[in-house]
Amino acid sequence: MKSSGSDARSHKGPEQKVVTMREVAKAAGVSIKTVSNVVNDYQFVSDATREKVNKAIDELGYVVNASARNLRRGQTGVISLIIPDLQLPYFAQLSSLVIGEAKKLGLQVIVEPTLYSREGEIEALHGKRLSMLDGVIFSPLELGQDDVGQLDVDYPLVLIGERIFTDSVDHIATENVEGAKRATAYLIQTGCRRVAVLGVHPGEKVGSAGLRFQGYKEALEENGIEFDERLVAPSRMWHRVDGVDAMNRLLDSGVKLDGVVALNDMLASGAMHAIQMRGLRIPDDVSVIGFDNSDDSQYLSPSLTSITPGLEAVARLSVRVLKNRIDGVSPLGTANGGTVFRKVSSTLVVRDSTRRVDR
């Protein structure tokens, strides 16, 4: 039957439109992942489901790309990690951890930074070199919820982060809302009442910035502190210089503040520099807390209190799930090869940039 094989694409003749895996899934009344399981000949698909999918494939003309199928069937032992930028400590650390976990399973990793480019992310998902890979781990930044269709691919794919939510692919997420809420609440517990937030992306709802901002606001509300728009410092990028600029804007505005929640550690580092250049003391005058617990956060002066997002678990789970998919094994004990969604827990690491609760 036309559906057998590991890599399927639509037949495109002169008069024919491209048929996507999403269309096959809709016609069969199943998920995209189920269609992928069928075209990959995974054994855990029921006969009834396989029959429905194969019928839809035949009726729509969705056929096998034999050359890619044969290459993937041989398994190259190589996977790709698609990230926005290697200069940010978060992604550098994530890359190192993924490489380490992949090595344990006999896999090599090609790290592909997309450099904050929407076109780069799309190319990384759909480019010709994918035929040389067994699977992909993807951390999007420029693609968003409206781009779910870009994840309609015919190779094993694991999504990480919180830019896109869908039940069509395996997904390992982190506690962005909960982590920022925990950070803000801790500052309040230490006595801070005028807590600023750095790195907000105005209008963003889904994504690290939007979700961490949500957590910040929830903590204020739950502790009876009124939200003040003047304490919000937007920043498109999250590098150290952006933290300096955002903090200087707040200080120049004259708004009173005694605490800062920076949406990542690089912003926090820049904010600390700006605060100290004004002759203010950390944490006596202003407490600062970051997010990501990057490797160098403990070496700042003072050392930075931060939220650990559990990158070790993110790397371990994403590589494990991807390898299961490559091998045709139902990942993490999911029934019938269904998609995986796991949210990794975050923790607070208290250092010297914040006052202590017991003061």
Rank of each mutant, 00 (worst) to 15 (best):
131 S>H: 02
131 S>G: 07
133 L>D: 07
136 V>R: 11
136 V>L: 12
139 S>K: 01
139 S>W: 10
140 P>E: 07
140 P>L: 05
144 G>F: 05
144 G>I: 01
144 G>K: 07
145 Q>R: 01
146 D>H: 11
146 D>F: 03
148 V>P: 04
151 L>M: 10
152 D>V: 09
153 V>Y: 01
154 D>I: 01
157 L>K: 12
158 V>R: 01
159 L>Y: 11
159 L>T: 02
160 I>E: 04
160 I>F: 10
161 G>E: 12
164 I>W: 07
164 I>K: 10
166 T>P: 02
166 T>G: 10
167 D>T: 13
167 D>K: 01
168 S>E: 13
169 V>I: 03
176 N>F: 11
177 V>E: 15
178 E>F: 04
179 G>A: 01
180 A>S: 15
182 R>M: 15
182 R>S: 04
183 A>I: 09
184 T>G: 06
184 T>M: 03
185 A>V: 03
186 Y>N: 11
189 Q>S: 15
189 Q>D: 15
190 T>D: 00
191 G>N: 09
191 G>L: 02
192 C>F: 05
192 C>N: 00
193 R>T: 13
194 R>D: 15
196 A>L: 08
198 L>T: 00
198 L>Q: 12
198 L>D: 06
202 P>G: 08
203 G>A: 05
204 E>K: 03
205 K>T: 15
206 V>R: 00
208 S>A: 14
208 S>H: 05
209 A>Y: 13
211 L>H: 00
211 L>C: 09
213 F>H: 12
216 Y>E: 05
216 Y>N: 03
217 K>F: 04
219 A>M: 01
220 L>K: 09
222 E>N: 11
223 N>K: 08
223 N>V: 08
223 N>I: 12
223 N>C: 09
223 N>Y: 13
